[in-house]
Design a protein around this nucleic acid. Sequence first.
DNA 1: CCAAAAGTGTTCGTTGTACACCCATGG
DNA 2: CCATGGGTGTACAACGAACACTTTTGG
Lengths: 230, 230
Amino acid sequence: MVQFSTAHEVLTVVFQVRGLESENPQLSVLLWERALDPERGAWALPGGRLRDNEDLTSSARRQLAEKVDLREVAHLEQLAIFSDPHRVPGVRTIASTYLGLVPAPAQPELPPDTHWQPVDQLPPMAFDHHPMVLHAHARLIAKLSYTNIGFALAPKEFAVSTLREVYEAALGYQVDATNLQRVLTRRGVISRTGTTAAPGRAGGRPAALFRFTDDRLRVTDEAAALRPPA
Amino acid sequence: MVQFSTAHEVLTVVFQVRGLESENPQLSVLLWERALDPERGAWALPGGRLRDNEDLTSSARRQLAEKVDLREVAHLEQLAIFSDPHRVPGVRTIASTYLGLVPAPAQPELPPDTHWQPVDQLPPMAFDHHPMVLHAHARLIAKLSYTNIGFALAPKEFAVSTLREVYEAALGYQVDATNLQRVLTRRGVISRTGTTAAPGRAGGRPAALFRFTDDRLRVTDEAAALRPPA
DNA sequence: CCAAAAGTGTTCGTTGTACACCCATGG
DNA sequence: CCATGGGTGTACAACGAACACTTTTGG
Protein backbone atom coordinates (compact mmCIF):
# COMPACT_ATOMS: atom_id res chain seq x y z
CA MET A 1 0.00 0.00 0.00
CA VAL A 2 1.29 3.43 -0.86
CA GLN A 3 0.46 5.10 2.40
CA PHE A 4 3.09 2.99 4.21
CA SER A 5 6.01 4.27 2.14
CA THR A 6 6.31 7.43 4.18
CA ALA A 7 8.83 8.04 6.92
CA HIS A 8 8.63 10.56 9.67
CA GLU A 9 11.50 12.53 11.15
CA VAL A 10 11.76 15.01 13.97
CA LEU A 11 14.09 18.00 13.62
CA THR A 12 14.83 20.43 16.43
CA VAL A 13 16.00 24.02 16.17
CA VAL A 14 18.01 24.46 19.37
CA PHE A 15 18.84 28.02 20.38
CA GLN A 16 21.21 29.33 23.02
CA VAL A 17 22.54 32.80 23.75
CA ARG A 18 26.31 32.42 23.69
CA GLY A 19 29.14 34.73 24.70
CA LEU A 20 27.26 36.45 27.52
CA GLU A 21 30.42 37.39 29.43
CA SER A 22 32.11 38.63 26.26
CA GLU A 23 31.63 41.78 24.23
CA ASN A 24 28.78 40.72 21.95
CA PRO A 25 26.54 37.84 22.93
CA GLN A 26 24.77 36.13 20.04
CA LEU A 27 21.79 33.89 19.58
CA SER A 28 23.11 30.65 18.09
CA VAL A 29 21.66 27.47 16.60
CA LEU A 30 22.98 23.97 17.05
CA LEU A 31 23.96 22.45 13.70
CA TRP A 32 25.98 19.48 12.49
CA GLU A 33 27.90 19.11 9.26
CA ARG A 34 26.86 16.28 6.95
CA ALA A 35 29.76 13.95 6.17
CA LEU A 36 27.90 11.93 3.53
CA ASP A 37 25.84 12.62 0.44
CA PRO A 38 23.29 13.86 -0.20
CA GLU A 39 24.18 17.40 0.75
CA ARG A 40 27.65 16.52 1.99
CA GLY A 41 29.27 19.48 3.71
CA ALA A 42 26.01 21.29 4.26
CA TRP A 43 24.81 22.00 7.79
CA ALA A 44 21.77 20.25 9.19
CA LEU A 45 19.48 20.35 12.18
CA PRO A 46 19.80 17.62 14.80
CA GLY A 47 17.09 14.97 14.69
CA GLY A 48 16.17 11.74 13.00
CA ARG A 49 13.62 9.02 12.47
CA LEU A 50 10.67 8.61 14.76
CA ARG A 51 10.52 5.27 16.57
CA ASP A 52 7.46 3.07 16.83
CA ASN A 53 6.91 3.41 20.53
CA GLU A 54 7.60 7.10 21.12
CA ASP A 55 5.68 10.26 20.50
CA LEU A 56 7.26 13.25 18.80
CA THR A 57 8.28 15.12 21.93
CA SER A 58 10.00 12.08 23.43
CA SER A 59 11.71 11.50 20.13
CA ALA A 60 13.06 15.05 19.98
CA ARG A 61 14.39 14.71 23.54
CA ARG A 62 15.96 11.34 22.82
CA GLN A 63 17.65 12.49 19.62
CA LEU A 64 19.19 15.48 21.32
CA ALA A 65 20.41 13.37 24.21
CA GLU A 66 21.81 10.60 22.03
CA LYS A 67 23.24 12.43 19.10
CA VAL A 68 24.55 15.62 20.57
CA ASP A 69 24.62 14.74 24.26
CA LEU A 70 22.34 17.61 25.08
CA ARG A 71 20.10 17.14 28.09
CA GLU A 72 19.64 20.64 29.40
CA VAL A 73 16.79 21.70 27.16
CA ALA A 74 14.65 24.00 29.30
CA HIS A 75 11.85 24.39 26.79
CA LEU A 76 10.65 22.36 23.83
CA GLU A 77 7.63 23.08 21.65
CA GLN A 78 6.17 22.04 18.34
CA LEU A 79 6.68 24.24 15.34
CA ALA A 80 5.36 23.43 11.89
CA ILE A 81 5.32 20.31 9.77
CA PHE A 82 7.18 20.28 6.47
CA SER A 83 5.48 17.88 4.11
CA ASP A 84 6.52 18.64 0.56
CA PRO A 85 6.74 15.20 -1.11
CA HIS A 86 10.15 16.07 -2.57
CA ARG A 87 11.68 17.89 0.37
CA VAL A 88 14.35 15.18 0.65
CA PRO A 89 15.50 12.65 -1.94
CA GLY A 90 14.60 8.96 -1.56
CA VAL A 91 11.80 7.71 0.63
CA ARG A 92 9.21 10.36 1.27
CA THR A 93 9.85 11.89 4.68
CA ILE A 94 7.63 14.23 6.60
CA ALA A 95 9.46 16.47 9.04
CA SER A 96 8.03 17.70 12.32
CA THR A 97 10.03 20.62 13.62
CA TYR A 98 10.56 21.60 17.22
CA LEU A 99 11.90 24.68 18.95
CA GLY A 100 14.32 23.91 21.79
CA LEU A 101 15.91 26.41 24.17
CA VAL A 102 19.03 25.95 26.30
CA PRO A 103 19.87 28.30 29.19
CA ALA A 104 22.87 30.56 28.78
CA PRO A 105 25.45 29.16 31.18
CA ALA A 106 25.13 25.53 30.07
CA GLN A 107 28.09 24.42 27.96
CA PRO A 108 27.28 20.89 26.93
CA GLU A 109 29.93 18.68 25.37
CA LEU A 110 29.44 18.46 21.63
CA PRO A 111 30.61 15.89 19.07
CA PRO A 112 33.31 17.16 16.70
CA ASP A 113 31.00 17.62 13.71
CA THR A 114 28.59 19.77 15.73
CA HIS A 115 28.78 23.51 16.31
CA TRP A 116 26.83 26.53 17.52
CA GLN A 117 26.26 28.94 14.66
CA PRO A 118 25.12 32.54 15.14
CA VAL A 119 21.65 32.93 13.63
CA ASP A 120 22.60 35.99 11.65
CA GLN A 121 25.49 34.21 9.96
CA LEU A 122 24.02 30.88 8.91
CA PRO A 123 26.16 28.61 6.73
CA PRO A 124 24.76 26.85 3.63
CA MET A 125 22.16 24.47 4.98
CA ALA A 126 20.90 21.06 3.91
CA PHE A 127 17.46 20.44 2.37
CA ASP A 128 14.79 22.77 3.75
CA HIS A 129 16.49 23.31 7.08
CA HIS A 130 17.16 26.99 6.52
CA PRO A 131 13.51 28.11 6.52
CA MET A 132 13.00 25.96 9.60
CA VAL A 133 15.54 28.02 11.51
CA LEU A 134 13.94 31.25 10.34
CA HIS A 135 10.55 30.02 11.42
CA ALA A 136 11.84 29.06 14.84
CA HIS A 137 13.52 32.41 15.29
CA ALA A 138 10.35 34.28 14.36
CA ARG A 139 8.41 32.21 16.87
CA LEU A 140 10.94 32.94 19.59
CA ILE A 141 10.85 36.68 18.93
CA ALA A 142 7.05 36.73 19.06
CA LYS A 143 6.85 34.73 22.27
CA LEU A 144 9.43 36.88 24.06
CA SER A 145 6.87 39.66 23.88
CA TYR A 146 3.80 37.97 25.33
CA THR A 147 5.07 34.98 27.33
CA ASN A 148 7.70 34.21 29.97
CA ILE A 149 9.71 32.13 27.48
CA GLY A 150 12.90 33.98 28.48
CA PHE A 151 13.22 31.61 31.44
CA ALA A 152 14.56 28.99 29.06
CA LEU A 153 17.36 31.22 27.76
CA ALA A 154 18.47 33.08 30.89
CA PRO A 155 20.69 31.81 33.71
CA LYS A 156 19.03 30.65 36.94
CA GLU A 157 19.87 33.94 38.64
CA PHE A 158 20.84 37.10 36.84
CA ALA A 159 21.16 40.88 37.00
CA VAL A 160 18.79 42.89 34.86
CA SER A 161 21.70 43.98 32.69
CA THR A 162 22.48 40.34 31.92
CA LEU A 163 18.87 39.68 31.09
CA ARG A 164 18.94 42.63 28.75
CA GLU A 165 21.84 41.06 26.87
CA VAL A 166 19.89 37.82 26.53
CA TYR A 167 16.85 39.63 25.15
CA GLU A 168 18.91 41.79 22.83
CA ALA A 169 20.65 38.77 21.38
CA ALA A 170 17.41 36.88 20.87
CA LEU A 171 15.42 39.81 19.52
CA GLY A 172 18.17 41.31 17.39
CA TYR A 173 17.70 44.89 18.56
CA GLN A 174 18.37 47.07 21.58
CA VAL A 175 16.24 46.85 24.69
CA ASP A 176 15.98 49.38 27.53
CA ALA A 177 16.96 47.65 30.78
CA THR A 178 14.73 49.93 32.84
CA ASN A 179 11.59 49.07 30.97
CA LEU A 180 12.50 45.42 30.61
CA GLN A 181 12.58 45.17 34.37
CA ARG A 182 9.35 47.07 34.80
CA VAL A 183 7.39 45.11 32.23
CA LEU A 184 8.55 41.71 33.42
CA THR A 185 8.10 42.61 37.09
CA ARG A 186 4.60 43.99 36.54
CA ARG A 187 3.62 40.77 34.84
CA GLY A 188 5.10 38.67 37.60
CA VAL A 189 7.51 37.03 35.16
CA ILE A 190 10.67 37.79 37.18
CA SER A 191 11.15 38.39 40.89
CA ARG A 192 14.02 39.41 43.15
CA THR A 193 16.07 36.75 44.88
CA GLY A 194 17.04 39.17 47.66
CA THR A 195 20.75 38.73 46.94
CA THR A 196 23.07 40.95 44.96
CA ALA A 197 26.00 40.37 42.63
CA ALA A 198 29.46 41.70 43.42
CA PRO A 199 30.42 44.76 41.33
CA GLY A 200 33.10 44.46 38.65
CA ARG A 201 36.61 45.84 39.06
CA ALA A 202 35.51 49.21 37.74
CA GLY A 203 33.14 49.64 40.67
CA GLY A 204 29.51 50.52 40.41
CA ARG A 205 26.49 49.75 42.47
CA PRO A 206 26.00 46.03 43.10
CA ALA A 207 23.24 44.59 40.92
CA ALA A 208 20.18 43.00 42.48
CA LEU A 209 19.70 39.42 41.33
CA PHE A 210 16.46 38.17 39.81
CA ARG A 211 15.05 34.84 38.82
CA PHE A 212 12.17 33.79 36.59
CA THR A 213 9.14 33.06 38.74
CA ASP A 214 8.12 30.00 36.67
CA ASP A 215 10.09 27.44 34.72
CA ARG A 216 7.21 26.49 32.45
CA LEU A 217 5.78 28.46 29.59
CA ARG A 218 3.04 30.87 30.60
CA VAL A 219 1.18 33.41 28.50
CA THR A 220 1.50 36.75 30.26
CA ASP A 221 -0.27 39.08 27.87
CA GLU A 222 -3.23 37.01 26.77
CA ALA A 223 -5.30 39.29 24.55
CA ALA A 224 -4.26 42.85 23.84
CA ALA A 225 -7.59 43.72 22.30
CA LEU A 226 -11.14 42.36 22.46
CA ARG A 227 -10.64 40.87 25.88
CA PRO A 228 -13.59 39.58 27.89
CA PRO A 229 -15.60 42.22 29.80
CA ALA A 230 -14.76 42.73 33.47
CA MET B 1 11.53 -2.01 8.87
CA VAL B 2 9.57 -0.62 11.76
CA GLN B 3 9.65 2.96 10.67
CA PHE B 4 7.48 2.19 7.66
CA SER B 5 4.56 0.90 9.70
CA THR B 6 3.32 4.37 10.44
CA ALA B 7 0.44 6.07 8.66
CA HIS B 8 -0.25 9.75 8.49
CA GLU B 9 -3.67 11.37 8.54
CA VAL B 10 -4.85 14.94 8.25
CA LEU B 11 -7.80 16.11 10.35
CA THR B 12 -9.41 19.51 9.99
CA VAL B 13 -11.40 21.42 12.55
CA VAL B 14 -13.78 23.46 10.40
CA PHE B 15 -15.59 26.34 12.08
CA GLN B 16 -18.46 28.45 10.88
CA VAL B 17 -20.69 30.95 12.67
CA ARG B 18 -24.22 29.72 12.04
CA GLY B 19 -27.63 31.26 12.64
CA LEU B 20 -26.54 34.85 12.08
CA GLU B 21 -30.02 36.03 11.07
CA SER B 22 -31.62 34.21 13.99
CA GLU B 23 -31.74 34.98 17.68
CA ASN B 24 -28.50 33.39 18.85
CA PRO B 25 -25.70 32.73 16.35
CA GLN B 26 -23.28 30.00 17.38
CA LEU B 27 -19.81 28.94 16.45
CA SER B 28 -20.12 25.41 15.09
CA VAL B 29 -17.78 22.59 14.06
CA LEU B 30 -18.20 20.26 11.15
CA LEU B 31 -18.43 16.63 12.36
CA TRP B 32 -19.48 13.30 10.93
CA GLU B 33 -20.92 10.32 12.75
CA ARG B 34 -18.99 7.07 12.52
CA ALA B 35 -21.09 4.24 11.13
CA LEU B 36 -18.53 1.50 11.78
CA ASP B 37 -16.39 0.30 14.67
CA PRO B 38 -14.16 1.35 16.25
CA GLU B 39 -15.99 4.16 17.97
CA ARG B 40 -19.25 3.54 16.10
CA GLY B 41 -21.75 6.31 16.79
CA ALA B 42 -19.11 8.74 18.01
CA TRP B 43 -18.51 11.98 16.13
CA ALA B 44 -15.29 12.57 14.24
CA LEU B 45 -13.42 15.31 12.43
CA PRO B 46 -13.31 15.24 8.63
CA GLY B 47 -10.02 14.07 7.16
CA GLY B 48 -8.17 10.96 6.15
CA ARG B 49 -4.97 9.41 4.93
CA LEU B 50 -2.26 11.48 3.34
CA ARG B 51 -1.47 10.53 -0.27
CA ASP B 52 2.00 10.01 -1.66
CA ASN B 53 2.05 12.97 -3.98
CA GLU B 54 0.40 15.68 -1.91
CA ASP B 55 1.51 17.84 0.97
CA LEU B 56 -0.57 18.27 4.09
CA THR B 57 -2.36 21.45 3.08
CA SER B 58 -3.41 20.04 -0.29
CA SER B 59 -4.55 16.91 1.47
CA ALA B 60 -6.72 18.84 3.89
CA ARG B 61 -8.30 20.77 1.02
CA ARG B 62 -8.89 17.61 -1.00
CA GLN B 63 -10.44 15.73 1.89
CA LEU B 64 -12.87 18.53 2.60
CA ALA B 65 -13.82 18.84 -1.04
CA GLU B 66 -14.25 15.09 -1.57
CA LYS B 67 -15.76 13.92 1.64
CA VAL B 68 -17.98 16.76 2.67
CA ASP B 69 -18.22 18.73 -0.55
CA LEU B 70 -16.83 21.81 1.11
CA ARG B 71 -14.88 24.16 -1.10
CA GLU B 72 -15.45 27.52 0.47
CA VAL B 73 -12.74 27.39 3.09
CA ALA B 74 -11.48 30.96 3.41
CA HIS B 75 -8.62 30.16 5.75
CA LEU B 76 -6.65 27.03 6.55
CA GLU B 77 -3.70 26.74 8.91
CA GLN B 78 -1.68 24.09 10.67
CA LEU B 79 -2.42 23.32 14.27
CA ALA B 80 -0.58 20.70 16.29
CA ILE B 81 0.47 17.13 15.60
CA PHE B 82 -0.97 14.35 17.71
CA SER B 83 1.51 11.52 17.88
CA ASP B 84 0.68 9.28 20.82
CA PRO B 85 1.52 5.75 19.57
CA HIS B 86 -1.83 4.47 20.87
CA ARG B 87 -4.07 7.36 19.90
CA VAL B 88 -5.97 5.08 17.51
CA PRO B 89 -6.19 1.26 17.45
CA GLY B 90 -4.44 -0.72 14.71
CA VAL B 91 -1.67 0.70 12.58
CA ARG B 92 0.09 3.57 14.23
CA THR B 93 -1.27 6.81 12.83
CA ILE B 94 0.09 10.29 13.34
CA ALA B 95 -2.47 13.03 13.00
CA SER B 96 -1.76 16.51 11.69
CA THR B 97 -4.55 18.86 12.61
CA TYR B 98 -5.68 21.92 10.70
CA LEU B 99 -7.93 24.84 11.49
CA GLY B 100 -10.37 25.72 8.69
CA LEU B 101 -12.75 28.66 8.59
CA VAL B 102 -15.86 29.05 6.44
CA PRO B 103 -17.57 32.45 5.96
CA ALA B 104 -20.98 32.92 7.51
CA PRO B 105 -23.36 33.02 4.56
CA ALA B 106 -22.00 29.91 2.84
CA GLN B 107 -24.35 26.95 3.26
CA PRO B 108 -22.58 24.05 1.58
CA GLU B 109 -24.44 20.83 0.88
CA LEU B 110 -23.52 18.17 3.41
CA PRO B 111 -23.74 14.38 3.30
CA PRO B 112 -26.41 12.88 5.57
CA ASP B 113 -23.98 11.65 8.25
CA THR B 114 -22.40 15.12 8.57
CA HIS B 115 -23.58 17.99 10.77
CA TRP B 116 -22.60 21.33 12.21
CA GLN B 117 -22.35 21.07 15.98
CA PRO B 118 -22.22 24.10 18.28
CA VAL B 119 -18.81 24.15 19.98
CA ASP B 120 -20.28 24.60 23.42
CA GLN B 121 -22.44 21.49 23.07
CA LEU B 122 -20.09 18.92 21.63
CA PRO B 123 -21.35 15.33 21.36
CA PRO B 124 -19.23 12.32 22.46
CA MET B 125 -16.28 12.33 20.13
CA ALA B 126 -14.08 9.64 18.63
CA PHE B 127 -10.46 9.00 19.64
CA ASP B 128 -8.62 12.20 20.58
CA HIS B 129 -10.75 14.46 18.42
CA HIS B 130 -12.27 16.35 21.32
CA PRO B 131 -9.03 18.02 22.50
CA MET B 132 -8.31 18.87 18.88
CA VAL B 133 -11.47 20.94 18.69
CA LEU B 134 -10.64 22.68 21.95
CA HIS B 135 -7.16 23.45 20.69
CA ALA B 136 -8.52 24.89 17.46
CA HIS B 137 -11.03 27.03 19.32
CA ALA B 138 -8.35 28.42 21.63
CA ARG B 139 -6.22 29.28 18.60
CA LEU B 140 -9.13 31.04 16.92
CA ILE B 141 -9.91 33.09 20.02
CA ALA B 142 -6.30 34.17 20.38
CA LYS B 143 -5.93 35.16 16.73
CA LEU B 144 -9.12 37.19 16.70
CA SER B 145 -7.34 39.56 19.05
CA TYR B 146 -4.13 40.23 17.16
CA THR B 147 -4.82 39.33 13.51
CA ASN B 148 -7.44 40.01 10.84
CA ILE B 149 -8.59 36.36 10.92
CA GLY B 150 -12.21 37.49 11.17
CA PHE B 151 -12.24 37.92 7.39
CA ALA B 152 -12.63 34.16 7.08
CA LEU B 153 -15.75 34.02 9.26
CA ALA B 154 -17.61 37.19 8.26
CA PRO B 155 -19.72 37.77 5.13
CA LYS B 156 -18.17 39.69 2.23
CA GLU B 157 -20.00 42.87 3.26
CA PHE B 158 -21.52 43.45 6.65
CA ALA B 159 -22.81 46.00 9.16
CA VAL B 160 -20.79 46.43 12.34
CA SER B 161 -23.64 44.89 14.32
CA THR B 162 -23.38 41.74 12.22
CA LEU B 163 -19.65 41.62 12.70
CA ARG B 164 -20.21 41.91 16.42
CA GLU B 165 -22.42 38.83 16.33
CA VAL B 166 -19.70 36.92 14.50
CA TYR B 167 -17.09 37.92 17.06
CA GLU B 168 -19.36 37.21 19.99
CA ALA B 169 -20.14 33.73 18.70
CA ALA B 170 -16.49 32.93 18.07
CA LEU B 171 -15.17 34.43 21.30
CA GLY B 172 -17.97 33.23 23.57
CA TYR B 173 -18.52 36.56 25.30
CA GLN B 174 -20.05 39.96 24.65
CA VAL B 175 -18.26 42.53 22.53
CA ASP B 176 -18.93 46.27 22.33
CA ALA B 177 -19.79 47.19 18.75
CA THR B 178 -18.42 50.71 19.18
CA ASN B 179 -14.98 49.59 20.22
CA LEU B 180 -14.90 46.70 17.78
CA GLN B 181 -15.34 49.17 14.95
CA ARG B 182 -12.75 51.55 16.34
CA VAL B 183 -10.10 48.93 16.94
CA LEU B 184 -10.50 47.21 13.59
CA THR B 185 -10.68 50.50 11.70
CA ARG B 186 -7.62 51.91 13.40
CA ARG B 187 -5.68 48.81 12.45
CA GLY B 188 -6.87 48.99 8.88
CA VAL B 189 -8.52 45.58 9.19
CA ILE B 190 -11.95 46.71 7.97
CA SER B 191 -12.97 49.61 5.74
CA ARG B 192 -16.25 51.15 4.60
CA THR B 193 -17.72 50.12 1.26
CA GLY B 194 -19.57 53.42 0.94
CA THR B 195 -22.95 51.72 0.76
CA THR B 196 -25.53 51.20 3.49
CA ALA B 197 -27.94 48.44 4.39
CA ALA B 198 -31.70 48.99 4.46
CA PRO B 199 -33.14 49.28 7.96
CA GLY B 200 -35.35 46.50 9.36
CA ARG B 201 -39.13 46.84 9.68
CA ALA B 202 -38.76 48.38 13.13
CA GLY B 203 -36.89 51.31 11.65
CA GLY B 204 -33.57 52.64 12.79
CA ARG B 205 -30.73 54.36 11.10
CA PRO B 206 -29.40 52.49 8.06
CA ALA B 207 -26.14 50.70 8.81
CA ALA B 208 -22.97 51.51 6.91
CA LEU B 209 -21.49 48.46 5.26
CA PHE B 210 -17.90 47.36 5.76
CA ARG B 211 -15.61 44.79 4.28
CA PHE B 212 -12.33 43.26 5.41
CA THR B 213 -9.46 45.03 3.71
CA ASP B 214 -7.50 41.81 3.13
CA ASP B 215 -8.55 38.24 2.50
CA ARG B 216 -5.30 36.72 3.72
CA LEU B 217 -4.10 36.37 7.27
CA ARG B 218 -2.16 39.37 8.55
CA VAL B 219 -0.81 40.06 12.01
CA THR B 220 -2.12 43.45 13.09
CA ASP B 221 -0.76 43.77 16.61
CA GLU B 222 2.73 42.36 16.22
CA ALA B 223 4.39 42.84 19.58
CA ALA B 224 2.55 44.41 22.47
CA ALA B 225 5.69 44.75 24.54
CA LEU B 226 9.43 44.87 23.88
CA ARG B 227 8.97 46.19 20.39
CA PRO B 228 11.91 47.52 18.40
CA PRO B 229 12.96 51.13 19.18
CA ALA B 230 11.62 53.86 16.92
C1' DC C 1 -43.20 62.42 17.63
C1' DC C 2 -41.65 58.16 19.51
C1' DA C 3 -39.12 53.85 19.43
C1' DA C 4 -35.32 51.51 17.49
C1' DA C 5 -30.98 50.93 15.55
C1' DA C 6 -26.54 53.04 14.26
C1' DG C 7 -22.85 55.99 14.91
C1' DT C 8 -19.91 59.66 17.44
C1' DG C 9 -17.59 61.74 21.31
C1' DT C 10 -15.69 61.80 25.95
C1' DT C 11 -13.65 60.01 29.94
C1' DC C 12 -10.85 56.94 32.19
C1' DG C 13 -7.40 53.53 33.43
C1' DT C 14 -3.52 50.78 31.89
C1' DT C 15 0.43 49.86 29.37
C1' DG C 16 4.74 50.77 27.37
C1' DT C 17 8.59 54.06 26.09
C1' DA C 18 11.93 57.60 26.79
C1' DC C 19 14.80 59.88 29.63
C1' DA C 20 16.32 62.50 33.64
C1' DC C 21 17.82 61.83 38.09
C1' DC C 22 19.49 59.49 42.37
C1' DC C 23 22.29 55.51 44.68
C1' DA C 24 26.18 52.41 45.90
C1' DT C 25 30.57 50.76 45.06
C1' DG C 26 35.90 50.54 43.75
C1' DG C 27 39.86 52.93 43.10
C1' DC D 1 35.63 62.30 45.43
C1' DC D 2 34.84 60.72 40.99
C1' DA D 3 33.91 57.49 37.42
C1' DT D 4 31.00 53.58 36.71
C1' DG D 5 27.29 50.84 36.58
C1' DG D 6 22.54 50.05 38.90
C1' DG D 7 18.09 51.61 40.17
C1' DT D 8 14.03 54.82 40.69
C1' DG D 9 10.85 58.45 39.27
C1' DT D 10 8.42 61.24 35.98
C1' DA D 11 6.39 62.61 31.69
C1' DC D 12 4.13 61.33 27.72
C1' DA D 13 1.72 58.91 24.08
C1' DA D 14 -1.12 55.09 22.52
C1' DC D 15 -4.52 51.90 23.23
C1' DG D 16 -8.67 49.85 24.71
C1' DA D 17 -13.05 49.81 27.63
C1' DA D 18 -17.13 51.92 29.17
C1' DC D 19 -20.83 54.76 28.48
C1' DA D 20 -23.43 58.98 27.39
C1' DC D 21 -25.14 61.36 23.59
C1' DT D 22 -26.55 62.36 18.82
C1' DT D 23 -28.26 60.88 14.20
C1' DT D 24 -31.38 58.60 11.01
C1' DT D 25 -34.85 55.77 9.89
C1' DG D 26 -40.03 53.38 10.20
C1' DG D 27 -44.40 53.60 12.03
